[in-house]
């Protein structure tokens, strides 16, 4: 099993395509941070213009934390795309290339193979979410320094500098869980097809469609909302409420983990019986 995991990791990280995601994230972070360096103060002024008459703002509000929060909010389309690019290709890509049959004619159990592939997906998702967090925080600190965090999340919340880091760590954990739900869905679809384009497109279509349902405040959608996974993948932002709703946070984590288990479980069961015709 360990050998299989090592081989799958090696295959994933020997592929140039696996680094496109890291490069894309880095480029976006650099562009956004440089833009904020030039125009960030006017954006922040717009943010707090109504409060200036009531409150006295002191210190460095345009800081690395503020920029990281803005970046995390803007990545909701890109990150699912990047993780489904790898997870959607994991099985279907090999089936399409014909390398899957080269593996399966070896004394390898199908269940172990798909679990090894899943581990490679988990490692990739973990690293790419960590890279997003770490690089935006580090570059933000470097360019803008630290300070209190001011965010708008339902209401305008201001967190002291000492109260910020744990929120980002929790946001990272929940961001990872959310992206794992997306990756598991792409992985499941990948087990069903022989072409990696299909799983990637279907995953993205579902993410975008469900996100609309999750975010549009219509009465009809209120009934559907608890049943779509996108309602839970944005749970990382719960940690930027002044008082964290822990019950909702725990509920979200459990539902996300359940989604991951169900998607991956179906993928394993189906792959175990699948006829390899390519």
């Amino acid at each position: 099993m360990l050998t299989l995991i090592k081989i799958e990791l090696e295959k994933t990280f020997c592929h140039r395509r696996s680094y496109i995601g890291f490069l894309a994230i880095f480029v976006i972070i650099v562009i956004v941070q440089l833009a904020m360096y030039v125009e960030g103060n006017s954006l922040l002024s717009f943010f707090i213009q109504n409060l200036k008459d009531v409150f006295l703002f002191e210190g460095n509000l345009l800081n690395g934390y503020f920029i990281t929060f803005i970046l995390l909010n803007s990545m909701w389309v890109l990150m699912p795309f990047l993780v489904s690019l790898i997870a959607g290709d994991m099985i279907a890509g090999e089936a399409n290339n014909g390398t899957l049959r080269m593996i399966l004619i070896r004394p390898v159990s199908r269940r172990n193979l798909i679990i090894a592939k899943l581990v490679a997906v988990i490692v990739y998702v973990f690293l790419i979410v960590l890279f997003l967090m770490a690089s935006s925080l580090l570059l933000g600190q470097l360019l803008f320094g630290a300070g209190d965090l001011i965010v708008y999340h339902g209401s305008l919340n201001i967190f002291e500098e000492s109260d910020v880091m744990w929120r980002f760590i929790m946001a990272f954990i929940y961001g990872f869980l959310g992206m794992m739900v997306v990756a598991s869905l792409a992985f499941l679809l990948s087990a069903f097809t022989e072409n990696s384009l299909g799983p990637i497109i279907i995953t993205m279509a579902l993410v975008i469609g469900f996100t609309i349902i999750s975010n549009l405040n219509l009465e009809l959608f209120n009934y559907i909302r608890p049943w779509v996974f996108t309602t839970y993948i944005s749970s990382w932002s719960l940690f930027f409420d002044y008082v964290v709703d822990w019950q909702r946070a725990i509920e979200s984590a459990i539902i996300s983990v359940l989604h991951i288990f169900v998607f991956c479980g179906i993928a394993i069961l189906y792959f175990n019986k699948k006829d390899i015709l390519t």
Binding site: K11, C14, N97, G98, T99, R101, M102, I105, R106, P107, V108, S109
Partner: peptide, 17 residues
């Protein structure tokens, strides 16, 4: 499935990484 360690196979066009 361990029995497959005693078999080598080439199926149609060989595919590699």
């Amino acid at each position: 499935h361990k029995i497959l360690s005693r078999i080598g196979a080439l199926i149609e066009e060989p595919r590699f990484y």
